[in-house]
Nucleic acid binder design. Structure first.
Lengths: 112, 112
DNA sequence: TGCACTAAGTTCCAAATAAGAACTTTCATG
DNA sequence: CATGAAAGTTCTTATTTGGAACTTAGTGCA
């Protein structure tokens, strides 16, 4: 079975993952919760390629998890902000954060 | 940046996702919470290929999230059970389940 | 006018993963 | 001895990712 066919799975966990379960997607949402909203911020912060950031933002907008709106008209510039249903991913991200803090201490701390 | 380099990221969400953020992995954990423990059960239930189930189980065991043990000696047969730290993914799965139940009602219900 | 610079993407190619089916190994049962 | 189950492995093809370069539509000087 293809991953993309999970969208109409009987299981709500599977249906949710069909939207946010791809690589990098949840890290982009994490950045949204940290106040980021622009393309370059997501690319720099997550480390995902621009190609992937572009794909994920498009799909998150289509899923109604992020909202895209212009913050400048000339030149046209857009920003991405969590919708109400997007905000409701907070519990999931907090759960992952807590698990990581408890079970995965950093080995070699990030140097500057 | 490669996805696999997230294991020593400063962010605990990223470190956690480097272990369980690949496609199918969280669905296998879901099945563990539903009481499943065998290779074929995971393959049938998730729909992932045997190749992927094999890879994910190996990595979950290496990460200390599942424990592999023999339930039969002849022929040798193994089962996979959540460790204590594995059990602690419950809040994350519950968060995804709740989000899906609330925001993603099934369109065409699974027919038999 | 012209040059450098910014933000937000898109495009292209090579490398890594996933999908699907068939095959293997080790027994148990009839 | 033939059939079948469980747990993987192997093989080939299709889809995704990773990395770098390129594009578009301006802005800010000098």
């Amino acid at each position: 079975m293809k991953w993309t066919d999970l969208d109409d799975n009987w299981c709500p966990v599977a249906r949710t993952l069909s939207l946010v379960g791809d690589r990098w997607t949840l890290l982009i949402l994490r950045d949204c919760f940290l106040g980021m909203s622009r393309f370059d911020q997501f690319a720099d912060s997550t480390g995902a390629t621009r190609h992937i950031v572009s794909d994920r933002l498009k799909r998150l907008v289509e899923a109604g998890i992020l909202e895209k709106s212009a913050y400048s008209d000339r030149p046209k510039r857009y920003e991405y902000v969590l919708t109400e249903r997007g905000q409701e991913f907070a519990p999931a991200l907090i759960a992952f954060r807590d698990w990581g803090k408890k079970h995965l201490p950093v080995r070699r701390p990030t140097q500057a």
